[in-house]
Simulated scan of single mutants.
Amino acid sequence: MPSPRHDGVKDLVRESPQTVARLVCAKNAEAAIRPHVPLREASNELNDRPSRDFYPDNVFTQGSPSAPSSVLVVEIQHEKEEQKRRQIARYAAALWLFHRCAPVVAVVCPSQAAADFYDEPIGTELPGYRYPPVAIGPDDIPRVEDAGTVADDPALAALSVMAHGSSMSVLTAFLEGLSRLETDDSSKYYEYAYRLASQQVKQSLEAEMTSGTWPVYSPFAKTHYGHGREDGREEGRTAERAATVIDLLEARGLPVDDATRARITACNDIERLKAWSIAALTVDRAEDIFEA
């Protein structure tokens, strides 16, 4: 089951695919994507019959819906998995067969180690077919430290928080830039950034939100603070604690497979999740937390 951070990136990309297109073209000038041409969300159901259906995280097209000139696929990957790399090459082949144009597959990775892994051309069983994805990691996401840039491109600023949120200059600019947006937009992009951030950065965002430097009297701040800290819904507390457990494991470089991730996120016992978060600091394997 995808993590809250994974879903956060996926939703942010759906909101602003143009931001990823610009990052792709900044890294690979030969990519067959035009960064200023609108991208239209397309179906992410792919197949290579008679094999099986595939579902990349996001698929967008440019040009005519029936005969697109370009296709952009965005995948979010947190860990280095060879099986996932091979799947990316299949996405590209299936889209080429369906649309008859060369797709661009961008792999957005919160960690640079994962981005470096996915940035290499992917070999396949088909002789001569090696697919080169475009991996976007922290090194490829600029540090947005100017409030004006945040206001102009809040999606990029949210990705900057994901990649560089440990820098207070990034967080300060992000919050200041949000204050220049309409309430609905500022709330939306704060939530994106919060979902994408590590647990440590989430705590920093909350501290800034409730400090004297942030205008807590604004409708946006009241809405967020009331939603995040005062409503007290059990579902929200357990979801955040589950995300903490996963963040701690990933921060220590421990692989979290789908079964382990699903068991963590499905747990609604706050005390058990607390015990797992403590165990996550010392276990040798992610699944060992369940013995706590």
Rank of each mutant, 00 (worst) to 15 (best):
S167N: 12
P127Y: 03
Q199C: 07
G137Y: 01
A155E: 00
L205I: 06
D185S: 14
A207N: 13
S179M: 10
L175R: 02
S111W: 03
P103W: 01
V150W: 01
S198F: 03
Y192F: 15
C109S: 14
D119H: 14
T183M: 11
H164W: 11
R100I: 06
I136W: 01
K202V: 06
V144A: 07
D153Q: 12
S187Y: 13
M168A: 08
A193P: 04
Y189Q: 01
Y190C: 02
H99W: 13
Y189N: 01
Y194E: 13
R143Y: 02
E176H: 08
K202Q: 15
T183C: 13
Y190I: 03
Y189V: 04
D119S: 15
A114P: 07
Y129R: 09
V170Y: 00
A157E: 07
V108H: 07
R100T: 11
C101T: 15
L178C: 09
V108S: 09
V107F: 06
V105N: 08
H99C: 10
F117E: 05
D116L: 10
A163N: 02
Y129K: 06
I136S: 13
V144N: 06
L178W: 01
D152N: 11
A114I: 02
A102S: 14
P138D: 07
R143F: 00
R100C: 12
A147Q: 10
I122S: 08
G148W: 06
R100E: 14
Q199L: 09
S187A: 15
P142W: 04
A207D: 14
V150I: 10
L178S: 02
T124V: 06
V134I: 15
S167Y: 04
F98I: 07
G165M: 00
E182M: 07
A157L: 04
V108F: 13
A193M: 06
L159I: 03
A158Y: 05
E208W: 11
P121S: 13
G177L: 12
Y194L: 13
V134D: 01
L181E: 09
L196T: 04
H99K: 03
V144T: 09
S204C: 12
L156Q: 06
A102D: 13
L156H: 09
P103R: 02
D140F: 00
P142E: 00
A163Q: 02
I141T: 03
V144P: 04
G165Q: 00
H164Q: 09
V201W: 00
F117T: 09
Y129Q: 12
L175T: 05
P133D: 12
A173M: 10
L171V: 05
V161L: 02
L156S: 05
F98Y: 12
S169I: 11
L171Q: 05
G128Y: 11
S204I: 00
R143L: 05
E176Q: 14
F98K: 15
V105S: 09
A207G: 08
Q200T: 14
A115V: 11
G128A: 11
V104F: 11
G148P: 04
I136P: 08
G148T: 05
Y118P: 03
V161Q: 02
A193N: 05
K202S: 11
V107D: 04
L126K: 11
T149Y: 04
L156Y: 05
